[in-house]
Amino acid sequence: MMGVILFAIFATAAVACGINLVLQRHPVTSALSLIGVMGSLAVLYLLLGAEFIAAVQLIVYAGAIMVLFLFVIMLLNAGEERKIPGKSLVSKLIGLPVFVLFLGLVAYLIQTQYTHAGSPVDFDAFTGGGPREVGMALFTTYLLPFEVTSVLILIAILGAIVLARKEID
């Protein structure tokens, strides 16, 4: 019941923000739309019983990665994209219907493939996504990937510093 209403609201919000991301010419508007998508997805994760992932989505994605994006946009003072004249009329006229057709095809395939798929999604249908369960899985079954990821992040930090530092002549 509550699940249907929340899904309707936040799925619509996610799609609207996604469309806005693609249509807007200014990177700051796009970034804000992406934050909107991420916030809506966090609510959908809560609906799916993934409490920990929802919180991480807010903290890491919306709170850290997107701040970094916004920071770079503000730092470089990126303005609106220039309009490039002379796009072919055919692509303008055909592009959107073909895109909608493609999405419709995908939706049709998913619908036909998953009609029999078990339980519908609602609150309390699955409660194994709390911090305790996810942490348990991370530090037992997935311990090696987890540790390798920390090395990956270390390398990324080093790479970012090397790339972005000032050249000392």
Binding site: M1, G3, V4, F7, A11, A14, V15, L44, L47, L48, L103, V106, A107, I110, Q111, Q113, Y114, T115, A117, G118, P120, V121, D122
Partner: peptide, 13 residues
């Protein structure tokens, strides 16, 4: 009464 899984997959697509 409840959202099926396919709705989430279509949204994802």
């Amino acid at each position: 009464s409840a959202i099926p899984l396919s709705a989430y997959l279509i949204l994802s697509a």
